[in-house]
């Protein structure tokens, strides 16, 4: 897997996204896949920056990725204390629908094939399979 570590800063967090989107384009992925990966990455990087690293500029965000024509796999890790993703409420429930925050994990799960947390919630693994591959 390729690895890139960036400072805990939203501008710097764009670097891995740009690299990954370029590689998706080279591998021939279509706009729908690019939209899904861009969205999931933005959510994962924002969560790492804000909730994991608590906006601390001394911390870093770690990204690992492997892209093939068959499959996209990305890991985003922060240097925070972790969390329990099961405790994040479903933002589509009527009582939470007008909350401005809390949709990131739900969106990642909606657009990707796998979203799994490890290392006490400090690392998220994102997987999207290319369903257009011929069998």
């Amino acid at each position: 897997m390729k690895e890139i570590t960036v400072p805990n800063d939203l501008s710097a967090a764009k670097q891995p996204e740009d690299l990954i989107l370029e590689e998706l384009s080279r591998c021939g992925y279509d706009q729908n896949v690019s939209f899904a990966i861009k969205l999931a990455l933005e959510e994962a990087m924002t969560n790492a920056f804000r909730h994991g690293n608590k906006c601390d500029p001394c911390k870093c965000i770690h990204v690992r990725y492997a892209i093939t024509p068959e499959r996209i796999e990305i890991e985003v890790g922060d240097e925070g204390e972790g969390f329990c993703p099961d405790e994040v409420p479903d933002p589509t429930l009527p009582e939470f629908i007008d909350r401005p925050h809390g949709r990131g994990i739900m969106l990642m799960k909606a657009y990707l094939d796998e979203v799994t947390y490890g290392d006490n919630g400090t690392r998220v693994r994102l997987v999207k399979v290319n369903n257009k591959q011929e069998s």
Partner: peptide
């Protein structure tokens, strides 16, 4: 062309 959850949250914040 694109918006993520913080952007959606901005619209909701305006609504509230």
């Amino acid at each position: 062309d694109f918006i993520e959850s913080t952007g959606l949250g901005a619209i909701i914040a305006g609504h509230l």
